[in-house]
Amino acid sequence: MEAVRTEALTKYYGRTRGIEHIDLTVRQGDFFGFIGPNGAGKSTTIRTLLGLIRPSGGRARIFGLDIAKERERILERVGYLPSEVSFYPNMRVRDVLKLSAGLRRRRCGETVGRLCERLRLDMAAKTDELSFGGRKKTAIVCALQHEPDLLILDEPTSGLDPLMQRAFFEILRERNEKGATIFLSSHILSEIQHNCDHAAIIREGRIIAAGSVEELSRSGARRVSIRGSAGCGALAGVKDLRVSPEGLDFLYSGDMKTLLSVLAEGNISDISITEPDLEEVFLHYYEKEGDEK
């Protein structure tokens, strides 16, 4: 079954583009990455899925339920971590967690205790006095305490130190192993590469690539590093060219035979041609002209 399915999901803010014709499928139990820089439409997609904003066109279903008609039933099964966390004034962490559980008509005391211990979150602390990381941890516990079937996380690690990030992803992996679907929006590509099974890349409100993280990393482009000199700079398909006294380094997505013939004419003492990592693939997609996938 699909945890999330969108069909031509579109949102305009007046005349300003939010997202356009987003087709996205996230299978139940998947650890799904949603990649794009700020302003690409990640948060708009998430806010539409959560019913905070109404789509201008298209449709979306979560666990087969229509987001426009069955918002509350969907949200019973969803935990959400926003990128920017805000709480009501003059509340302690335990009050916020209790309020969140109360709004879900749940008692989550045991799970809350365990999560706070793992994330080293002081339940007696006042939220107004917490650091950004502390507020983020409070929001993480809010999102996880009712053990949701789908976790939607928008830039979840900003504000968390490396130790806490590790603890957080451990918890996510445990939840994922128990069957929860994770929808992780991020512009930190290593996070996606290390944790996600599938991912989609969004650019200017449109999905430009989607698939397994392995497939995405296995795009046609290759990272080419040369010690010596060769006339590769003018070749079609060369991106991210870096020239140093020792040699050349670039991302290549053109014809391989042409590259090899140019290299053969060059003065080369060493060469490596490797698959780029996700970050390079991401840049590759972002630097492409047009909207071809």
Binding site: L50, R71, I74, L75, E76, Y80, S86, L103
Partner: peptide, 14 residues
């Protein structure tokens, strides 16, 4: 104004 609507309205309340 205080950006708490996101907290409140992502809970299962109409």
């Amino acid at each position: 104004k205080d950006r708490t609507a996101e907290f409140l309205l992502t809970h299962p309340v109409s």
